[in-house]
Design a protein around this nucleic acid. Structure first.
Lengths: 119, 119
DNA sequence: ACCTATTTGTCCGTATGTATG
DNA sequence: CCATACATACGGACAAATAGG
């Protein structure tokens, strides 16, 4: 797990760290079940603050790519975990749609359009 | 905008602040276009740190309830803003589904099930 | 059952950057 | 140019969950 960071870049440090790990996961260098280095270790190695790394980890957790637990660390999620996370996201989305006054059917149509749109 | 906080509660302070403002928005006490107090002011009034309030604001922004802009502050979103946010969320969801190996059609079906499920 | 080390989670304080008005 | 207010980052402290002896 090799992470590099450029302090002079306009992209925030936490985003750079997150992007680096994300690409390792999507590229297969990190696989399901693999454990990331402890935030403090990464921070020391990079010369950045622990909070910066923890924020990067939190971002990846929100994306469903890793799981975080106290005492255990950060572990790369597997396919079933991500499907579970997807289900949870869908529930949140439906709730948001309702709060925004968007009818369920309209939301389904919207998802359909975006899902089948070819870029 | 009256916010109260209980430091002895197990729920994190930032979550308490977010919940209080969220309920003000959903209850109509805060309406579209209304400006929230500056994070620093709220922090001083509550006796908590600015970061705590800013994290609460960030949470509400992620939920699409408010917009945050430097120099301008936090403003309650209107219906069209929330529909826009919904569209963005859908795009993220579709990307996540693809990353998780879930076919577009399967995602649509999943949304359909959740959207029409009656609790 | 107990204790200890590990590791994330929250909170505080401070400083600096950056977009807005 | 200047004041406002969020955004990021640093540093330190303590709490809470986990794992292992």
């Amino acid at each position: 797990m090799l992470i590099r960071v450029d302090p002079s870049s306009p992209t925030p440090l936490f985003a750079q760290v997150a992007a680096s790990i994300r690409s390792d996961i999507e590229g297969g260098a990190l696989q399901a079940g693999d454990r990331l280095a402890a935030a403090r270790e990464v921070a020391d190695a990079l010369g950045v603050n622990v909070h910066t790394v923890l924020r990067a980890y939190g971002t990846l957790r929100d994306e469903g790519l890793i799981e975080l637990r106290r005492g255990r660390g950060a572990v790369v999620t597997g396919r079933s975990d991500r499907v579970d996370a997807l289900r949870a996201d869908v529930r949140v989305l439906v709730a948001k749609a309702r709060a925004a006054g968007v009818a369920p059917q309209a939301l389904v149509t919207l998802v359909q359009e975006v899902a089948h749109a070819r870029s």
